[in-house]
Design a protein around this nucleic acid. Structure first.
Lengths: 342, 342
DNA sequence: CTGAAAGCGCTTACAG
DNA sequence: CTGAAAGCGCTTACAG
């Protein structure tokens, strides 16, 4: 945008009768001294002209920007919307703008965006839940992120398994394990899990945690009991249908994420199944919709906003050695699951 | 971020053995001619060095930026998350980054953000559903937006009543009117509306539309039948409770937004009411959660993503006279409402 | 404390 | 077609 209207520092300086340099210092450095009344004059001039420093000029001069990049799967997904809400809130308090990009879980897009954000010279890049198992992709990401970091950028991943930058690790394994325990204790012995693509580290961890939890009680989750669909509501719908066709129906379905569980419940309801009367359903994540689900959804509730806040805070730290924060959540046993023998 | 690593155009030029100017032209203008093989040399040099133009330098030189600002109420709200999803998708196709800010319906914040975004020299500012009735606020917004526009910025409002920039008008009045008609035809005669703050133009329009629709059938919506709460799930919870205490309960509750209706249903269920057996509930907006609601929510479904896309497309037009696009939606009669006499 | 000047990395008239 | 140079709006050593 061409802007002949906007006042430049030059204009402020002239109006206040000082040099460019002095105006810059007065405006930028509160500890700067100066002749009596000078500071007031400069401030008044800036105010009168509605002066707003041009961030591009500043970025160019200082090699620093007031933008941070936030990489999510999809804003429309409540899980990411809540993470984003937390991150944006913290950014706001630091007078930073956040550029949000959606990868739709496409590794190429992810790479491309990291590149774009780095090229934009954003101050930090936050990657949420987008770690893939793909080795070559991981290597490329590492390379790019390291270059970005070497150039002074800050990187934070909300996931595990990234070899560069700070990390906010979500206790996917432990959470699912707790959920498994609770479900077994409730009386369940046969399960089916609706999982997303095993390319996703998050999926892998949650499946692993669930298996571990069952194994703690001597229950084995067979390969066939894990359905690989999409990590979305639609994936849940598809998964529920597949499960309903099996000869031996499990007493409990576990969705790898709340949206998956909600999709499953939707399909089950539509096809005459009672939840939890005919079959129990549990989720993972703790998005608000889990509470409004009918029946309310048993899940492992993650402090999503807090996770987003933590990630942004980490991103805004002055350069420091890799830092790792572990985040866990709380089990919420609700009416979507119950003892199958009752 | 200090970046001594990044290749500059200078480096590319040297490697290719041409001047800065030529390198710039080769990279930027595909129609530019040049000695045989020159273009290839420059391209190869850029590729080899991993050259990425510094957007701040470019912005400074051309007074143009590749960022656009998106002002929403709250990302966590599904309505805005879906609008954002549409807008971000279009921006992506145009290689633009979007800076998202949340106002939480605070007029001061809104003003402050518009200022920030304008100062950032974003190419366009999209304001979604944040029109307030406050006169002095509106005047200030108009002033700022006009200055921004005069400076070459593009502004789009997803609401009505803005005197500057393009508009995407949502048919709140007509939609609510249709909903009212359908509800009356279903057999309802007594209603209560859970509305948000009447400071919001959106609320005002939806209430108006609903009243009009009832009046078409000779039904008067009294002042007491409109509850002013928050335009949120919690507002719906609070509203439902208030309604339940009334001597004469209406046969149908209408939430000014889907989340409000969902909150109301939640409260009703928790307190032993059957929906729609004891009371019907309808919403407005058409967020996906309306479908998963139990019972599925009767609502007026807006094409939220499409609205977001349209707004972004308008924002990206070359400077043109004010443009106005009307968007309407479709009535979805679902199980949350039914004939009270049945 | 204050100012003249260089420099950040681009683009684009202006000459050749 | 090509290059030397000015300029975009800041910040910050470098002198005074």
């Amino acid at each position: 945008m061409v802007d002949r209207t906007a006042a430049r520092l030059q204009d402020v300086a002239e109006r206040a009768g000082v040099s460019l340099a002095t105006a810059s210092r007065m405006l930028g450095d509160p500890t700067y001294g100066g002749r009596a009344g000078l500071r007031e004059r400069v401030m008044a001039a800036a105010e009168a002209l509605g002066y707003r420093p041009n961030p591009h000029a500043r970025a160019l001069a200082t090699s620093t920007s007031s933008n941070v990049g936030l990489v999510v799967h999809d804003v429309r997904d409540a899980y990411f919307a809540h993470l984003s809400g937390g991150a944006i809130g913290v950014a706001e308090r630091h007078d930073l703008l956040v550029s949000m990009v959606c990868t739709y879980r496409d590794p190429h897009r992810e790479l491309e965006y990291v590149e774009r954000l780095a090229a934009q010279r954003v101050r930090a890049i936050i990657l949420t839940g987008t770690s893939f198992r793909d080795r070559s992709h991981a290597a490329q990401m590492t390379e790019r992120l390291e270059a970005y970091q070497a150039a002074g950028g800050s990187v934070v991943s909300v996931s595990r398994g990234r070899s560069v930058g700070h990390m906010v690790e979500i206790d996917n394994v432990g959470g699912m394990r707790q959920l498994a325990h609770a479900l077994v204790e409730q009386g369940h012995e046969s399960f089916a899990m609706i999982a997303g693509s095993s390319r996703l580290l998050t999926v892998q961890d949650r499946v692993k945690g669930f298996k571990l939890g069952l194994k703690d009680h001597g229950i084995e989750l067979g390969h066939d009991d894990i359905l690989t669909t999409e990590m979305s509501r639609e994936g849940g719908v598809a998964g529920a249908e597949l499960i309903s066709h099996r000869r031996r129906r499990p007493t409990c379905i576990v969705g790898v994420a709340d949206v998956v569980a909600i999709g499953a419940i939707s399909w089950l309801h539509a096809h005459g199944f009672d939840v939890p009367g005919d079959i129990s359903v549990a989720g993972f994540g703790g998005i608000p919709a889990a509470i409004d689900s009918v029946p309310p959804l048993t899940t492992f509730e993650l402090p999503l906003e807090h996770i987003g806040q933590t990630a942004m805070e980490l991103a805004l730290r002055p350069p420091s050695p890799r830092h790792m924060v572990e985040m866990t959540g709380e089990l919420r046993m609700r009416e979507s699951t119950r003892d199958p023998r009752s």
